[in-house]
């Protein structure tokens, strides 16, 4: 990983929000508190990006977003398709898009082993289930589906 990544310690899908806590690795960073952002990029339509604030304390990062936010951006999920959003962390200093994932432990097959509950976001057009999951490459993404297929 030449330009670093955002290593997840915990993911908390709870109370209508998804909170991600972790540590930035393999990248030089200034000490102290800084502001960054967590971006959610629609995998099929990469121009569709949802951005939310992230707090950086040295290498530690923490960010959270409301499930409603991503539900209302997931137009296709309301219509019945599933949509996938990939998570990146942007840090000051021009390093764009550190992929958010979990690579530094010995647990294989995280897609099946480390699973998270879905939450439901309401939009004017219907309800969308939003569920964080680890991809086969152990990166964190969201899968959005109609809450009632």
């Amino acid at each position: 990983m030449a330009h670093g990544h955002a290593e997840i310690h915990q993911v908390w899908p709870k109370d209508g929000r998804v909170r991600v806590v972790g540590r930035i690795v393999d990248l030089d960073l200034p000490t102290g508190v800084a502001a960054g952002s967590l971006t959610l990029t629609n995998r099929d339509r990469p121009h569709l990006v949802v951005r939310c604030p992230a707090t950086l304390t040295g290498r530690r990062f923490e960010a959270s977003f409301a499930v409603d936010l991503i539900a209302s951006a997931s137009a296709a999920a309301v219509a019945g398709d599933q949509e996938v959003w990939d998570l990146h962390l942007e840090v000051p200093g021009g390093h764009s898009g550190l992929r958010v994932g979990r690579h530094l432990d010995d647990i294989p097959n995280k897609k099946k082993v480390m699973t998270f509950p879905a939450q439901v976001g309401g939009t004017a057009r219907g309800f969308v289930s939003v569920k964080p999951y680890y991809t086969v490459e152990h990166n964190l993404s969201l899968i959005c589906r109609p809450a009632q297929p």
């Binding site: 908390w12 082993v113 998270f116």
Partner: peptide, 18 residues
């Protein structure tokens, strides 16, 4: 068991390894 882990919010601490 997976649903129990989700319900108790233990997904960051308990892993069903297979």
């Amino acid at each position: 068991l997976q649903r129990l882990i989700h319900r108790l919010h233990l997904y960051n601490h308990v892993y069903l390894m297979g």
